[in-house]
């Protein structure tokens, strides 16, 4: 037993030292002598790192009282199952769903406003829009021929499949062919949550900088389509188009990228034609 920390004692009350960081070499109850330290955070030879909360019983696998329960479960299994159910529900009705993800303020709502205006009378659309607070986006999107539903996440930084499941049947009525889900503005968290969409569409506005894909690769890796927005501001911010496209294709080779300005309409034709084809 270690006099300093008491490790190796089954059922011990844990470290007695106020300083958990110390080295020692000794034998634990007949096990091979070994050296380890009790720094609060450390790495093992197999590349794993973990932290010991202060005052935690240092229970290594040698402890006689300890046993291992194998779980092997996907932590987001419940979300994944609901997402699969959402997707099946949409498939039965012939609805194609896009999950729009981007930083806050990159132009998701304006792109949707203009998209709904241009698809009105051609393709029936529906929108679910998520924000932490307010129904401002829903109000902006209403009156454009598409049913709209706002989800206020209150504190959550992303939408989840359960929130979508709860409002799917209310917002997707007979005749809807395209569902747009406007996620909470965030380039990190929405990457982790499948909502049941058919494709994630990542937006990148020219004002954000060309290197966003390099800094936030997961969301670009997971997207099926990229849209560069606010092209009307490109000259004002010195947008380096080649660098941006290279950054996108470096983390996601071959990712198809639209370049447009929802405000001026530049580049919108190709986007709209793509959506019309997707809806068939």
């Amino acid at each position: 037993m270690c006099e300093t920390c008491g490790c190796g004692q089954s059922g011990s009350a844990g470290p007695t030292s106020q300083d958990p960081s110390h080295d020692h070499g000794h034998s634990h109850d007949g096990y091979e002598p070994h050296v380890h330290d009790h720094a609060l955070s450390h790495s093992h030879d197999d590349g794993t790192t973990h932290s010991h909360g202060a005052g935690v019983v240092n229970s290594h696998s040698q402890d006689r009282a300890a046993r291992r329960i194998e779980v092997g479960a996907d932590v987001l299994a419940a979300n994944a199952e609901l997402a699969a159910r959402n997707r099946a529900w949409l498939n039965e009705r012939g609805v194609v769903a896009f999950n729009l993800v981007s930083s806050p303020g990159s132009g998701k709502t304006l792109l949707l406003e203009r998209t709904l205006d241009r698809l009105r009378g051609r393709v029936r659309c529906a929108v679910i829009t998520g924000d932490v607070r307010t129904d401002r986006d829903a109000r902006r999107l209403e009156g454009r021929g598409a049913p709209v539903r706002q989800i206020e996440t209150l504190s959550a930084c992303h939408l989840n499949a359960d929130q979508i499941a709860r409002c799917l049947s209310e917002v997707v009525d007979e005749g809807v062919r395209l569902l747009f889900i406007e996620n909470v503005g965030n380039l990190v968290c929405p990457a982790a949550f499948d909502l049941g969409e058919h494709m994630k569409v990542v937006l990148l506005s020219v004002t954000e900088g060309e290197d966003k894909p390099l800094k936030y690769p997961a969301v670009f890796v997971g997207a099926g389509l990229a849209v560069i927005t606010k092209l009307d501001l490109a000259a004002a911010v010195g947008w380096d188009r080649a660098a941006a496209l290279q950054a996108i294709r470096s983390v996601h080779p071959g990712l198809f990228t639209f370049e447009l300005s929802a405000r001026t309409g530049e580049g919108m034709d190709a986007w709209i034609e793509y959506l019309v084809k997707a809806a068939v």
Partner: peptide, 29 residues
């Protein structure tokens, strides 16, 4: 930041690992 083959350099690749979030096991006393 280059998602490409580390062997031949081709960019026609498929992500096969790195998306997991799994609870593997518990040690219980």
């Amino acid at each position: 930041p280059d998602v490409r083959c580390g062997h031949c350099g081709a960019d026609r690749v498929r992500i096969v690992d790195g998306r997991q979030l799994r609870l593997e096991s518990l040690d219980v006393e």
